[in-house]
Nucleic acid binder design. Structure first.
Lengths: 149, 149
DNA sequence: CAAATTTAAGTTGTGCACAATTAAGTTGTG
DNA sequence: CACAACTTAATTGTGCACAACTTAAATTTG
């Protein structure tokens, strides 16, 4: 029978612990860029597609405006982006990179390989873990919406 | 080549998203017990071994006193536990369940099976994911301590 | 077209995480 | 024994997450 502690037997704790451990590896790397991990995720999206709306960011990150609004405000205060209401739909706020924010991309390119190495998995193992996690997340989301039987 | 977004290709985002999705499934179940997910983790440890110290809780959960002290204070205020400095070493604080806290265990027994079902994995798949995550977390921790080459 | 509904973003309040610091107790060493 | 080094908790301050609510704009509908 498993000798592991009550926590180590629970896959949800493993997720929780792994997620925090990954963020901890990111932290010093991102600190050099002046970013936190959630801020880095926002910047990744903006580097790919400048000018997305707060709603679109929230959809990709699975975060609501209660989290994103203050986060974007901080990034704006740091001079990395600007928020502008879109003229065609005054409800929406489009997020645009400043030159400083756009320039940070170069320095951020080295980050992912660092993390991949730290995880101690082969590229194949990483890919497989990623696929499993995507599947689990989708199943959990489906369940959260309709916590049926 | 992969059509997935910049985020979905990153295993760390998958971890972050999966962890939050799992917590979201826990939330309504634990709300019935008057617990948050981190509080539930603490209670799991106490149900297994009453009277552990704050340091030991922190070691198991990989959390420091900056997180645990206020969390325990809230559980104490809710009447679930008591904190007592140990006589043999006045630095340590032992955490003891109250009858109410101990009694909650029965109601919490149904929780894990709910989550396992929601994750949409076979028991085998869960076990394997758990093992992979444990391995990754250990590798990440090792790297965090010594961010060498 | 006016009222009701829906959508987008922001605000407020609670509870983690975590860095940095503080305070008090214990241990080790000269 | 004295006192430096270490250990344990708690505190302070920042930044997420997330629920609940507010405000304003757009859309739907009677």
């Amino acid at each position: 029978m498993p000798e592991r502690s009550i926590l180590k037997r629970q896959v949800c704790f493993s997720l929780y612990a792994a997620s925090r451990a990954a963020t901890a590896v990111y932290r010093p790397l991102l600190q050099d860029l002046g970013l936190t991990y959630p801020q880095y995720l926002v910047m990744l999206l903006l580097w790919e597609h400048d000018g997305v709306s707060v709603r679109e960011l929230g959809e990709e990150l699975e975060l609501d405006s209660g989290t994103l609004s203050p986060l974007l405000k901080r990034l704006e205060a740091a001079g990395m982006l600007e928020r502008r209401r879109t003229p065609d739909d005054e409800r929406r706020v489009a997020v645009h990179l400043t030159p400083h924010g756009a320039g940070l991309r170069e320095k951020a390119l080295a980050v992912p390989s660092h993390i991949a190495a730290a995880a101690g998995l082969t590229p194949d193992g990483l890919e497989q873990l990623n696929a499993t996690l995507a599947k689990v997340t989708a199943a959990l989301h489906a369940h959260a919406k309709d916590p049926a039987p």
